[in-house]
């Protein structure tokens, strides 16, 4: 907590990593500032050192290597929504990014890295990435480390935001026969989501081959539901199966959030509704056209 903070703007990842290793607690990493600046402005946070990673080129850009899309942590929401490689290869992610609130100001400043690092339960990026089984790459004084986003979400010792840097997000290109849906329930246009669901479904003709659903905004961290849905594979989708998926997803929520978005009983129920609606969206074959270019 300092009245006269220091500001550092490392030129490259190596400098940034060395700097962070040399600093004690009280340093914050800042990029787009969408998470941190409101706290700074209201005096909730008074960091000693700001490490501004905004100038590091290695954290920018979207690249494709074979079938893997690499997204630099500094990529802003606006670019996630509209970059051709993401829209073509990861339409679910592009669509989820379009559901982010806050308007163009937030979309133009907020980064995918900041969105993940904040671990905010009501955000849209994590459910979409978890549905796509994404990996992340972290840099700390121990060097580069690759892990799944799911692993990161359940690991509290990653030091993100202060001692380690999220460098990129790595996602396998979605196969052409994969159907996807994303449903965000918001109380009103200006509200956070009160239940989000991402669905990724593989079909074998009329039959469901695999299904993976991720529920966000209902509990502290996003919940990945896959194995529990195995019983509904192999057949065609029916309303009964939809209701069954709804039930499975409700049961998957152990500790629902209860906040000003709504109470826990409702949130748990909405996990099911969002899951069913995301599934229905995936199966409606309307998804690709729903992305605003």
């Amino acid at each position: 907590m300092s009245l006269h903070p220091m500001y550092a703007r490392p030129r490259d990842l190596e400098q940034a990593s060395q700097l962070l290793a040399s600093l004690s607690s009280g340093a914050v990493i800042i990029a787009g500032g969408q998470e941190i600046m409101p706290f700074i402005n209201y005096g909730v946070m008074m960091p000693d050192v700001y490490v501004d990673i905004g100038g590091i080129k290695a954290l920018k850009g979207v690249n494709v290597n074979d079938d893997e899309v690499s997204i630099g942590a500094l990529t802003v929401h606006r670019d996630i929504q509209s970059t051709e490689d993401i829209v073509e290869r990861l339409p679910l992610l592009a669509y989820a990014a379009q559901q982010i609130g806050g308007g163009w100001q937030v979309h133009n400043r907020g980064t995918i890295g900041g969105n993940i690092v904040s671990m905010h339960p009501l955000y849209d990026i994590a459910p979409a990435l978890l549905a796509l089984d994404a990996d992340v790459e972290l840099l700390s004084d121990k060097g580069l480390q690759r892990m799944s986003l799911l692993q990161l979400q359940n690991d509290s010792s990653h030091g993100l935001g202060s001692s380690s840097i999220l460098t990129k997000i790595l996602v396998k290109t979605m196969l052409p026969n994969v159907l996807w849906g994303y449903y965000k329930l918001k109380n009103s246009a200006g509200a956070y989501g009160s239940a989000n669901a991402a669905a990724v479904i593989q079909m074998d003709g009329e039959k469901i081959k695999s299904i993976r659903i991720v529920i966000g905004a209902v509990s502290e961290t996003s919940v990945v539901i896959s194995k529990a849905l195995d019983g509904y594979l192999g057949g065609a989708y029916t309303l009964e199966i939809g209701r069954a998926i709804e039930k499975v997803c409700i049961d998957a929520i152990d500790e629902p959030l209860s906040d000003q978005q709504g109470d826990g009983v409702w949130r748990k129920a909405m996990a099911g509704i969002a899951a069913r609606r995301a599934t229905e969206m995936a199966l409606s074959n309307l998804t690709t056209s729903s992305i605003k270019r």
Binding site: P38, N187, S188, A189, G190, A191, Y192, Q260
Partner: peptide
Amino acid sequence: QLTKSFKDYVMLRMAD
């Protein structure tokens, strides 16, 4: 006080 910002005190927007 629980309601401390417009994140919690949600007013309608044009889209609503």
